[in-house]
Design a protein around this nucleic acid. Structure first.
Length: 556
RNA sequence: UGGGGUGUGGCCAAGCGGUUAAGGCAGCGGCUUUUGAUGCCGCCACUCGGUGGUUCGAAUCCACCCACCCCAGCCA
């Protein structure tokens, strides 16, 4: 799985060293999602990192839901997260864990801090607390409740817990240093009152632990050795260490931060993705235009492509912007290897092969892949076929040499060579039919006269095909950094990013297309059957990604 | 602005005092091809945010400066 030629990243170096010097004897990592939204490609990087590290160093990786805020969390999100991790192909060690399983222990440790005079119940409301916290340059001032007695804090915490105190009126705070240059250390909140039930803990609690208090303790309880998170938590690390140092925890985990993944023309923020979903800009969390794991799945991107992409990413402390094309490379690379080939005409134009009898029908057996033995499929070849509108033009031009024009010939992919004789137009001057003649001996052979066609085009039998819809996608945002320089990212949403084509013609074999299986529609791109808009009458295919094209109009 | 972090080609990134400054993506040129796909070949930083210094030798060490990111939720 891991490439030995690749130099170790800084976390691997630390782990390798910790093992060598017996700082730890086994690496234990964790992936700790908050169930308040769906996972996206940024999480995939973290998943691949944490699970990958555990595998590489023969350690363990836990899956733990950081469910400390019942206001935003629910079971739907828990379910989707589990589904996405499994789909990516990872298996966590032991049972699924939940921060809420440790609530009793957290409470005991909170009282422990009070007893050691390291925490106190504060009656400042949020505005007052904000004022007394100071600013980046000014130190904060001590809360008037900072020196209240230990007994009083213990009693008030108990009342907070049992639901006798109004929300927002009291908090439990760590007693650290109101003048610390690190604002996180200015008596941070440990517990806040939320008199709402928890999706797992029920109505047992009216107070819930804050992230900073809970996260390090969860890690310590589970024996996590290396708690890997993203860069924005760097200034929380001293607080992480403070709790670990001041509580009788069973182990001493350490936190390490790496740069999160940003992708051009995309949003990798759960909060902002939720905005897109809630405002109806997209078709739910699994809209194929979003880089959510479920969106990528619905779009037909193989999990291995996501993993290979994530593994190619640097684990460092720089926060860069990865070009979407870098991801697309891994998608095409995987799909080219694994996708079955098929022919689908997206904008059909009727072609009549005039030198074939009316009822001509010939079954061509053709391979499903140019190199791999993925089997064969039957292609019915008949007198009337469809080709794509863009593959015929009356006049030949050098630029158009690979396509069909009057007097010129092309190869029908997997079939015969035809030559265009004439065409029919409607009143509007649109071409509605092309008449061609077929070169009889040209199946699998070069033409007898030695004039080889320059191009190959795809086609579908007009009578023996299926109708289908095709969803074509463009990037969801028209700015490389949708939320760049203070802009509202919703304003950069591209309204035309989904194009639905309803008159497409697919080869017969695609009637049996399976959801989750990738297909290459030759000369067009990669597609998959949509799991939401396909029915027995008509299938919808989602475009995964177009084929690369080096062909430029201005050349030739 | 106090604190924390980061600056190597269009993008990502290796580099850890002595290399002609890896590699990938993108781009460009060519060959092959019954997918203008794939594959293959070639090109693409006299220079590492800037300026000084240390050294026989600096992207790597030191000093100062500049730019960008994160922290002032009872979010995570």
């Amino acid at each position: 799985m891991t490439d030995e030629n690749k130099p170790l990243n800084f976390i691997q170096q630390i782990m390798s060293n910790d093992l060598k010097e017996s700082v730890v004897n086994k690496i234990i990592t964790r992936f700790p999602p908050e169930p308040n939204g769906y996972l996206h490609i940024g999480h995939a990087k973290s998943i691949c990192l944490n699970f990958g590290l555990a595998e590489q160093f023969e350690g363990m990786c836990h899956l733990r839901f950081d469910d400390t805020n019942p206001e935003k969390e629910n079971e739907e999100f828990v379910k989707s997260i589990i589904e996405d991790i499994e789909w990516l192909g990872f298996k966590w060690d032991g049972d699924i864990r939940y921060a809420s399983d440790y609530f009793d222990q957290f409470y005991i440790w909170a009282k422990h801090l009070i007893m050691k005079n390291k925490a106190y119940v504060c009656e400042l409301n949020s505005e007052e607390m904000k004022e007394s916290r100071g600013t980046l340059t000014l130190p904060g001032t001590n809360s008037p409740y900072r020196d209240r007695s230990i007994d009083s804090s213990i009693q008030l915490l108990e009342s907070m817990k049992t639901g006798n105190i109004e929300e927002g009126s009291m908090t439990l705070r760590a007693k650290i240093d109101m003048s610390s240059p690190n604002i996180n250390l200015r008596d941070p909140v440990i517990y806040r009152i939320k008199r709402i039930p928890h999706h797992r803990a029920g109505d047992k609690w009216n107070i819930y632990p804050s992230y900073d208090f809970a996260h390090c303790l969860e890690d310590a309880i589970e024996g996590i050795t290396h708690s890997v998170c993203t860069l924005e938590f760097s200034s929380n690390r001293p607080l992480y260490d403070w709790f670990i140092d001041n509580l009788p925890v069973p182990s001493k985990p350490r936190q390490f931060e790496f740069g999160r993944l940003n992708m051009s023309y995309s949003i990798t923020s759960k909060r902002k993705l939720k905005l897109l979903v809630d405002a109806g800009f997209v078709d739910g969390w699994s809209d194929p235009r979003m880089l959510t794991i479920s969106g990528l799945r619905r779009r037909g991107i193989p999990p291995i492509a996501i993993r290979n992409f994530c593994d190619s990413l640097a684990v460092a402390k720089t926060d860069g912007l990865v070009d979407l094309s870098q991801f697309e490379f891994f998608v095409r690379n995987e799909l080219n290897k694994s996708a079955s080939r098929a022919m689908v005409v997206i904008n059909p134009l009727k072609v009549v092969i005039t030198n074939l009898p009316e009822n001509h029908s010939e079954d061509l057996s053709v391979p499903c892949h140019p190199e791999l033995s993925l089997g064969e499929r039957i292609l019915p070849f008949t007198r009337e076929i469809f080709i794509d509108e863009s593959d015929f033009k009356k006049e030949y031009s050098k630029k158009f040499k690979k396509k069909l024009s009057l007097g010129k010939r092309v190869r029908l992919r997997n079939s015969y060579i035809v030559e265009a004789d004439d065409y029919l137009e409607n009143k509007k001057g649109e071409i509605i039919q092309v008449n061609v003649s077929l070169l009889p001996e040209s199946l699998g052979e070069d033409p007898a006269d030695g004039v080889k066609p320059k191009g190959v085009i795809h086609w579908v039998s007009a009578d023996k095909c299926i109708d289908c819809n095709i969803n074509l996608y463009e990037r969801l945002f028209h700015e490389p950094i949708p939320d760049g320089n203070g802009r509202d990212f919703l304003e950069t949403v591209e309204p035309e990013s989904l194009k639905i084509l309803t008159n497409c013609k697919a080869e017969l074999s695609l009637a049996q297309a399976e959801v989750g299986k990738p297909y290459q529609f030759e000369r067009e791109g990669y597609f998959c059957k949509d799991d939401q808009n396909s029915d027995l009458k008509k299938i919808t295919f989602n475009q995964t990604i177009a084929l690369r094209s080096n062909w430029l109009e201005h050349k030739d």
